[in-house]
């Protein structure tokens, strides 16, 4: 059990950073650059863990990123990796889809507390942008998930995977998939919904006071969290994976799709992105729900 949990965590960390490296490479090619080597993300992470941040704003500043990382790790441990239910199911028998959805927001709240504690208004501004965007992101995603739970008469991820043995949900419920995928782009922090950090435009965002080991923790949790989200999408819409290669293939396809969309679009403002998310994908999701 504990070995399984450890393997799940290491895999999430490894694949998370590998995909992040690939994202940097693919984006660089789209921009006409070469980009850093694949291992650069790992180097960055390990290097930053050995450095300290310059200013210490007290215990809440310390605890915030740790709560965020705990939320991300907890999320990945509650999502089964394979659909045969034998290995790497983690803690999923003790939870269900609703629990996982809520874990996904536990991290951002911890982060918000940490960011608020240092008193930099630019940090709080980023957090407000993030929470406002979350409002838009959650709507289509939740409706899509509600549709799946009603269609499968269960909130158990394993059951939803098992019911896709013949037809994947992406075929059976295409509208729900489209809505969830648009939200998923935002959850991954890809354009056009990358309003939270928005580093090129304004000097603001949640990470404004965090450096060194805090930044390393933020980066690592973001890599783990991204993999958890990919995994969740694969489990819910692509029937889960039955082998390691299947897992890599399916997560990779989803990841590449998200990178391509992200590289084509510019960035929405916060209000625009929530407006768009509440109009287009939410309506698609509601129509999909009515079909269920």
């Amino acid at each position: 059990m504990f070995i399984d949990l450890l393997i799940m965590l290491v895999m999430a960390y490894g694949f998370g950073f590998l995909y992040y490296g690939l994202y940097r490479n693919i984006s660089a090619r789209v921009h006409g650059r070469f980009g850093p080597s694949l291992a650069q993300s790992f180097y960055d992470s390990i290097k930053l863990f050995t450095k300290d941040t310059s200013t210490d704003f007290g215990w809440m500043f310390f605890a915030g990123p740790i709560i965020m990382a705990s939320g991300a790790i907890l999320t990945v441990l509650f999502i089964p990796y394979f659909n045969h239910g034998e290995r790497l199911v983690g803690l999923s028998p003790y939870g269900n889809l609703i629990v996982v959805l809520y874990f996904m927001v536990l991290g951002p709240l911890g982060n918000a507390l940490g960011v608020g504690s240092h008193g930099n208004p630019f940090g709080a501004m980023g957090i407000t942008r993030g929470l406002t965007r979350l409002l838009g992101l959650e709507m289509p995603f939740y409706i899509a998930v509600v549709g799946l739970m009603i269609a499968n008469e269960s909130a158990d991820i394993g059951t939803i995977m098992a019911n896709q043995a013949e037809t994947y949900n992406i075929i059976a419920h295409p509208l729900l998939f489209i809505a969830a995928f648009i939200s998923f782009l935002g959850f991954l922090g890809k354009s056009p919904f990358d309003v939270v950090g928005a580093p090129q435009e304004v000097y603001s965002g949640p990470a404004v006071e965090f450096g060194g080991k805090f930044l390393a923790l933020a980066l690592s949790q973001s890599a783990i969290f991204s993999f958890a989200k990919l995994l969740l999408m694969v489990d819910l819409f692509l029937g889960g994976a039955d082998s390691l290669w299947d897992l890599i293939l399916k997560t990779f396809v989803l990841f590449v799709a998200s990178v391509f969309v992200g590289n084509v679009y510019g960035r929405f403002t916060t209000a625009q992105s929530v407006d768009f998310l509440l109009k287009v994908p939410t309506v698609i999701a509601i129509v999909g729900l009515l079909f269920v």
């Binding site: 504690s117 208004p121 709080a124 709507m139 509600v146 009603i150």
Partner: peptide, 29 residues
């Protein structure tokens, strides 16, 4: 389903006022 979607919308929006409460009093400057 639709009723649940509406409940979820309200529930997700509630994070904002929860954060405002803690930020407005204890965090920030």
């Amino acid at each position: 389903g639709l009723l649940l979607a509406a409940v979820l919308f309200s529930s997700a929006s509630a994070f904002l006022y929860c954060y405002k409460l803690v930020y407005g009093i204890y965090l920030g400057q």
